[in-house]
Structures are given as C-alpha cells and as structure tokens.
C-alpha cells in the first residue's frame, strides 16, 4: 500500500514538472526553449534513427573507464587514508583541492598534457568522480567502531581479517554512498568533457543541434543524460540493497 502511494507521489511530481515545462515552452519563455512535447518528439526521433545509441557508445567510454578507475583506485586510496595518519596527511589535501578546483579552468591544462583524445576525457571523469569516493571511504574507514576492531584483535584476527571482515563491511554503506555521488559526478564530467574538449557522443548532439538551432533535439539529448544517470543510480541502489540485505537499517554504530 505504502509502496504504491510513494510511486503515485513520484508520478505526480513528474507530471507537475513536465506540465510546467510544457506551459513554459508554449508561452514561450525564450525562443530557444522548446515545449515538453516537442522535446519528446525529438527524443523519439533520435532514438529511432539510432543516433542516441551511437552517441552513447562514445560518451560511455570515458565514463565507464573513469568510473571504474575511480571506484577501484578511489576505494584503495580511501582505505589507506582511513588506516594511516601519514597517508591521510599526504593524500587528503590532493583530493580536497581536486574537489574544489574549477574544472573548466583545468581542462585547457589537461588538453595540453593529454591531448584531445580519450585520455583527457577520462581525466575529467576522474577529477569529478574520484574525490568524493576517496574522501567518503577515508572517513568511513577511520570511523570504524573502535570496539569492533578491538574485538577482532582480541580474537587474534590478522590485519587482513580486520580490514576485510570488519573495516570494509562496516564502512561499506558510506563507501556506497560515495560511489553513488561519484557516479553522478562522473556523468557530469563525461558530458562536460565532450562539450569542452572535442564534441563527440551526446556532447556532439548538444553542440551540433544548438548550432543549427534545433533546440528540441538539444533538450532531448540533455534529458537523455538525466534519464541514463537516474537509471544507473537505480541499478547501483538495487545492487546495494542486494549486497547488504539482512543488515538492519541504522547499521554499524548499533544503536
């Protein structure tokens, strides 16, 4: 019952947003702002022609590579930061700077170093996705309940056991939250890279349709990014639920 109600509310709020969009497009707020129905039509056309699929094949390359690297390396570095004060001092500042750095200003520098190919785009995704993953993992790991670690030590658990059987499971909900934020940031990074470095993939659709004043297609492309990001995050959440099912909601701190 509750579940249907929450679906209903979500559906209603979507209707309100799209309704407002339709009205704003019809007024029109700006000649460059298409109505919702025009956008949907353009979206359908892009889908039928296969343009979107071809585009996403390009866009997803730096995204997938960047997010995978961010996840593995990021969790590794976060673990090091959380476990040793030394690496906290050494590494944390880098990621804090990375997180706050104005990315647009860094892109010319990246192009100078890595050229305009895939590497630069992956770098943009990394800069966007990595810091939040690293910093979340780091703080989750260093906040592992001390008594659980002490318990494992008292039963002569090895360093390895303590990391894999206590620290990582205890930190995993927060690590996953970091991953989710990292993936969303990675999406932004991937599109930004296509707009700022070389227009390929979805970035190309956006740039091209704007240049020929085909605003419905431009908005359709933007909408598709949001849609994909939402689907991706949903999948991640399902994975999380599957992975941690059985453990109580509040979790690690235990009351």
């Amino acid at each position: 019952m509750m579940r249907y109600r929450s679906y209903l509310i979500t559906f209603l709020s979507i209707c309100i947003v799209f309704g407002a969009w339709e009205i704003a497009g019809r007024i029109p707020v700006s000649y460059a702002f298409p109505t919702f129905t025009e956008t949907i039509a353009a979206f359908w056309a892009l889908l039928i022609k296969g343009t979107l699929f071809v585009a996403y094949f390009e866009t997803l390359k730096p995204l997938v590579v960047g997010v995978l690297i961010s996840a593995f390396v990021g969790i590794g570095i976060g673990l090091a930061i959380g476990l040793s004060r030394m690496s906290d001092w050494l590494l944390s500042p880098i990621f804090v700077v990375m997180q706050t750095a104005p990315l647009a200003a860094l892109i010319p520098l990246l192009i100078m170093i890595y050229g305009i190919g895939l590497t630069s785009k992956v770098a943009v995704v990394l800069i966007m996705a990595m810091p939040v993953i690293v910093l979340n993992t780091g703080s989750a790991v260093s906040n592992t309940p001390a008594s659980m670690v002490e318990m494992a030590r008292s039963f002569q658990g090895s360093k390895r056991d303590i990391i894999f059987k206590i620290i990582l499971p205890a930190a995993s909900p927060i690590i996953f939250a970091g991953l989710r934020l990292g993936v969303s940031a990675g999406f932004i990074g991937a599109v930004l890279a296509e707009l700022k470095i070389t227009p390929t993939g979805v970035g190309d659709i956006i740039t091209f349709s704007r240049s020929i004043a085909d605003y419905p297609s431009m908005y359709a492309a933007i909408m598709s990014i949001i849609l994909l990001a939402v689907i991706f995050l949903q999948v991640l959440e399902r994975m999380e639920i599957l992975l941690f099912k059985g453990r109580g909601r509040g979790h690690a701190s235990e009351e």
Binding site: P145, S147, M148, E150, M151, I166, P169, A170, F244, G246, R247, G248, H251, A252, E254
Partner: peptide, 9 residues
C-alpha cells in the same frame, strides 16, 4: 565487551 561489539551485518 561492555558494548557487545557484535557485527551488525
């Protein structure tokens, strides 16, 4: 342990 130190998962 006073606070039990059980694994919640």
């Amino acid at each position: 342990f006073q606070d039990f130190a059980l694994l919640p998962w």
